[in-house]
């Protein structure tokens, strides 16, 4: 029976001279899930990803991909697609030649034109890579990563520089890959993308994994917020108020109940709650709380 963990990292440390980029990091990625590794700048995401991709040797600790060392290219790479953070293509090769070369060397087989069609680059198949825009190069990068539908795909900042249509198309392709059974590991600065697509999220800060879980598990640690413009001469609110002044802010872990209480209070006193905003805690809030540690 195959292992449920595609990636297993235990006590990982990565140092650059005296600077310790990753400290005692442990996490697992389950088969078939989308796992987002998020963090502030310099949190150690790239170093971690480079070790797991097999591009960097850990100072200490253990990393396994499909139960093997990540740098065991012969065994691991045919099952793994990697989308790098930066382009790294030969500018004098055409789009089709680039996908055929990198895809072919991956040890998987696929139809190059089919892959180009997935990323909407088929009409640019004979264009030299040096003549592509930044967004087109990202799509080319994605094409080489998903060539042959690998079991595990690393996506390092996959949508940076993409327009909204290309981002949607890329996530559609990612969701299809996941539907076909692939495991996805991604890093991104677009938190709303991670919130929308990731099954689980690991939040890194200063080289360590501070929090890990589903979006709801991460956001339930912080209160939701209700806010509105304070009505003139308003009577006392039957809720605990976080701040008042021009704008009243209520923090709550029971959003629906407190919102109902608030609206009943407004009806009772015939008050209009101008600019009323209420919503669950977002990943952004968790991220900001992490950064303010």
């Amino acid at each position: 029976m195959p292992s449920t963990h595609v990636i297993d990292v235990d006590g990982l440390n990565v140092s650059y001279g005296d600077f310790q980029a990753v400290q005692d990091l442990s996490f697992q990625v389950r088969r078939g899930e989308i796992y987002a590794l998020l963090g502030t700048n310099g949190a150690g995401k790239t170093s971690t990803l480079e070790v797991v991709e097999g591009h960097r040797t850990a100072t200490s600790g253990r990393a396994r991909v499909f139960g093997r060392r990540p740098d065991d290219r012969r065994e691991v790479r045919p099952r793994t697609g990697i989308m790098l953070q930066e382009s790294g293509f030969a500018s004098d090769l055409t789009v089709r030649e680039s996908v055929a070369l990198i895809g072919g060397l991956s040890g998987r087989s696929d139809d190059v034109d089919r892959v180009l069609d997935v990323v909407d680059l088929l009409r640019k198949a004979t264009t030299l890579v040096g003549q592509l825009s930044g967004g087109e190069k990202r799509r080319l990068d994605f094409a080489t990563a998903v060539y042959g539908s690998p079991e595990l795909v690393f996506l390092d900042e996959p949508t940076t520089g993409l327009d909204i249509q290309s981002r949607d198309a890329l996530w559609t392709a990612v969701e299809k890959l996941r539907g076909d059974g692939s495991t996805i590991v991604l890093t991104t600065h677009y938190l709303e993308e991670a919130q929308q697509h990731a099954d689980r999220i690991g939040l890194m800060h200063r080289g360590t994994l501070r929090q890990e879980g589903t979006v709801s598990e991460l956001t339930r640690t912080l209160p939701a917020v209700i806010s509105f413009t304070t009505p003139p001469a308003a009577p006392a609110l039957p809720l605990e108020v976080a701040s008042t002044g021009d704008r009243t802010v209520v923090e709550t872990f029971t959003l629906q109940r407190d919102l109902r209480t608030l609206l009943a209070w407004a009806d009772e006193h015939a008050l209009e709650l101008a600019d009323l905003e209420a919503g669950p805690t977002r990943l952004d809030d968790v991220f900001r709380a992490l950064d303010s540690d």
Binding site: R73, F89, A90, S91, I102
Partner: peptide, 14 residues
């Protein structure tokens, strides 16, 4: 320098 080498090392090639 243009990371093409890293790209090649991302494949199964030795």
């Amino acid at each position: 320098q243009n990371l093409f080498l890293k790209r090649l090392r991302s494949t199964a090639a030795s």
